[in-house]
Design a protein around this nucleic acid. Structure first.
Lengths: 187, 187
DNA sequence: AAAAATATGTCAACATGGCTGACATAAATT
DNA sequence: AATTTATGTCAGCCATGTTGACATATTTTT
């Protein structure tokens, strides 16, 4: 961390002089032009491009249903956590209940998700996929699984484990236990 | 791939019977409940959660500027590719020029990006970060670099290389050469 | 039993950032 | 001279996020 800060300061000083009338071309340098920094930028871009393509196929499929990415997320997590409460879903998605309400209503109206009053706590509306919901979930998951399967397979078991460790480490330390619990659910 | 298809069919058959009045709870199973499938779902969720947290800090910073994620992407790629053309930027972002026009106009008006007419082809408007633009780019990059640095460091050099390979393999084969060229740019 | 807290839903208004379609201009290419 | 290319722009639509206020049923606390 200290090296990043140092490099950042160095660049800042190098940039300021030129202010309003700076020569732009190769003169503009990002914070820290060292090799270590280059690798970090590369990783940042890999995350951008990887995620971009990772969601491209589901987006296309969703279009045919007149659904969006938001619907996909709801279907996925309800599929993975049958009977989850609205509050739990909000917690995972990190959106407001008003935002969720819209997509959830559409999914319920069109028969992809159903709600059941909680048995012990009757204030809860527990969420479940219907048959159609499970089918949609599948269809969306097929291209993503295939993409991930190919990518992981090429790296071997060690590489796969390292990839997981790194992805987990990208998550806020604070949320990591929650996420671990979610991803390590029964099939 | 064939195994996924097979598992998919099997689940489909197991789901249909219950149709409208299905018992939902643990009865709803995703396509393929095997161990291999579980790992794929885990990876899919790691990508979701990883990306979610990966963009959270920049989002907060951007809020102070009244900018959004779209502005970040433009600032980043212009910073990384000084003098890039609008067409090249559109190609990377995969959005329409009308969508880009909005954020680009705001960034230019507020002095974060400047345009220069192309020297050889005077139809082009080549894009550059101003000093303020480079500074913003830095500020947004700091938390992301730090996050990535920590995550990669914990895995060691082999793990880091494997992570990169897998991220690259997640990208459409068709676009992989372009992406490799972009991420392997000079500092 | 009454009061407070909780889980959920809803109405209304607004912002961002995608999209399509149509059209305009200047410069390069044919 | 005609066409293509790079870019810009106007207008309108849609999806999905936001805030704030308020309603209802149910559970928990006092």
């Amino acid at each position: 961390m200290s090296d990043i800060k140092t490099i950042g300061k160095a660049r800042s000083a190098a940039i300021e002089p030129g202010k309003g009338t700076r020569t732009p071309a190769p003169a503009v340098r990002p914070a820290g032009s060292g090799e270590a920094d280059r690798r970090l930028i590369e990783a940042i871009e890999l995350l951008f491009f990887g995620y971009r393509d990772f969601v491209s196929e589901p987006d296309t499929i969703l279009g045919a249903y007149e659904f969006g990415r938001a619907h996909h997320r709801v279907v996925h997590f309800v599929g993975r956590n049958p009977g989850m409460t609205v509050a739990e879903l909000l917690d995972i998605l990190r959106i407001t209940k008003q935002s969720l309400a819209r997509v959830l209503r559409q999914l319920i109206e069109r028969g992809f998700i159903e709600q059941k009053t909680g048995e012990t706590d009757r204030r809860q509306r527990r969420l479940y996929l219907t048959g159609a919901g499970a089918e949609l979930w599948d269809r969306l998951a097929v291209p993503q699984k295939e993409r991930v399967r190919k990518a992981l397979a090429a790296a071997g078991p060690h590489g796969e484990a390292a990839w997981r460790d790194i992805m987990l480490a990208l998550i806020d330390e604070e949320h990591r236990p929650d996420v671990e619990q979610i991803i390590n659910r029964e099939p």
